[in-house]
Design a protein around this nucleic acid. Structure first.
Length: 425
DNA sequence: TCTGGGGTCCTAGGACCC
DNA sequence: TCTGGGGTCCTAGGACCC
């Protein structure tokens, strides 16, 4: 059976989330900033039209944003994650075969669905998601993932499509591919774009017609898969269940530069707790822990970067133990006198917790109590919000916490931040 | 003052084994 | 003097994604 791939992508997702709870933002230029209010990571169509670039540092365009009356928001991940879940749950009602690809997009596998008209089906998805969640989405349908991406992008760019484009047996597919810049093809990043342009490959159509041998030589097998996918031959599998992660990392830059070991330890303990939580969420244990410590590459000051790695005698997901090892690693690499910008923890050598290999020379501590304790902590935090229960080592003041000066309320995940609907009196 | 965070996959080359 | 062939595993580095 030939694959039929649907790609549902939320339009300007973070901006759309903000708009759901503040309809006055409709039609106005809006941007959302990254952590620490650093870079612009989401733009409304109006903001895009003003020429505001993705990834632009906010401080560089501050004046410009003010001048054009652009509304600016800190990223509110609690809100976006919850809205994303609502969208995905809605999509899952249309087909059981859904691959949640990122926070704002999902592939649907449609070849087994009894669908008479793809555009009609896609339109139905679109109106349902909008009605149930408030989020506008675009739907692309094609024989491969790469073409579904292109269908989606074309539909987004051209209002005539009304957010739906079906490329299955499309008579004009080459004309559409000819209008897509090669840099916008899924799998073609900055380096390959430069390279391909130098060789006269400027559009998706050029890439589709390129020689596979030549592409293989310069872009590896990955590039060949992209070319074949553009030709309608499916090479990138549909993944209904995400494979467990092989590395789990928690890292943040600080809201301000810090130099005290006490602050660094607080931040590190918090990040370890976060990473361990993710580890337990996929029912895994890790036996390698790394701590990274770094100053800001954007400053003129003295720079310092270092990593320390430790292998645990027995793989674990028990937060207090991981914090203990992390502190030891920090002590190894900490040097006084630097203004630190970021600390990170990485857990690797990850295995399923069920086939844990014990060490016959290491007494098992705590027995089942440890696991029950972690389960309890995770359950409470899932139910009542992150950090309802947290570790003392993570600190209370948390002076290093990221800046989020323009944060909207967590409308859907905190009782005391629910939106208020005023009835007329 | 101010520049995000979290991942994946592939390849080449070296070490090592029989 | 002459210096195989085939395989695995690991790592670093480079590309990509959202």
């Amino acid at each position: 059976m030939k694959p039929i791939v649907g790609l549902v992508d939320c339009n300007n997702f973070y901006v759309s989330c903000e708009r759901v709870f503040n309809p006055a933002l409709e039609g106005k230029p809006v941007v959302v900033l990254s952590n620490n209010d650093g870079c612009i990571i989401a733009r409304s169509n109006e903001a895009k039209a003003l020429g505001i670039k993705m990834g632009e540092p906010a401080f560089k365009v501050e004046k410009f944003l003010e001048k054009h009356n652009v509304r600016v928001f800190s990223s509110n991940y609690s809100l976006y994650a919850d809205m994303s879940q609502r969208v995905m749950e809605t999509l899952a009602l249309f087909t059981p075969d859904i691959e949640v690809y990122s926070i704002d997009e999902a592939f649907l596998s449609l070849e087994r669905m009894p669908i008479r008209s793809f555009p009609h089906f896609a339109g139905h998805i679109q109106t349902t998601v909008k009605k149930w969640t408030g989020i506008p989405v675009t739907v692309g349908i094609a024989p491969t993932k790469t073409l579904a991406k292109i269908a989606n992008e074309t539909a987004k760019k051209n209002p005539a499509y009304k957010g739906v484009l079906n490329l299955i047996d499309h008579p004009d597919i080459d004309r559409i591919l000819g209008a897509i810049d090669v840099s916008d093809v899924w799998g073609v990043g900055r380096q390959y774009t430069k390279f391909l342009r130098r060789h006269g490959i400027c559009t998706a159509l050029d890439l589709k017609n390129a020689s596979c041998d030549w592409i293989k030589k310069y872009m590896t097998i990955v590039g060949v898969r992209t070319v074949l996918e553009l030709r309608g031959i499916s090479c990138i599998e549909f993944e209904d269940a995400p494979p467990p992660k092989k590395g789990i990392c928690a890292s943040r830059s600080f809201g301000k530069k810090i130099d005290s070991p006490a602050d660094l330890k607080e931040a590190l303990a918090s990040y370890v707790a976060r990473a361990a939580e993710k580890l337990r969420a996929q029912r895994s244990v890790a036996s390698c822990l790394q701590v990274y410590l770094t100053t800001s590459p954007f400053r003129e000051d003295a720079q310092y970067y270092n990593v320390a790695t430790t292998f645990l005698p027995v793989a674990t997901s028990y937060t207090p133990e991981l914090i203990r090892y992390a502190f030891r690693m920090l002590e190894k690499i900490y040097k006084p006198g630097y203004k630190y910008h970021k600390i990170a923890v990485m857990l690797t050598e990850i295995k399923p917790q069920d086939c844990l290999q014990r060490d016959m020379f290491v007494a098992e501590e705590g027995g089942g109590n440890r696991q029950r304790l972690m389960e309890t902590v995770d359950t409470v935090n899932a139910r009542w919000g992150r950090d309802t229960l947290s570790y003392a080592a993570g600190g209370v003041q948390q002076s290093w916490k990221m800046r989020r000066a323009k944060l909207t309320p967590r409308f859907t995940t905190q009782w005391h931040e629910l939106p208020v609907v005023r009835a007329s009196v």
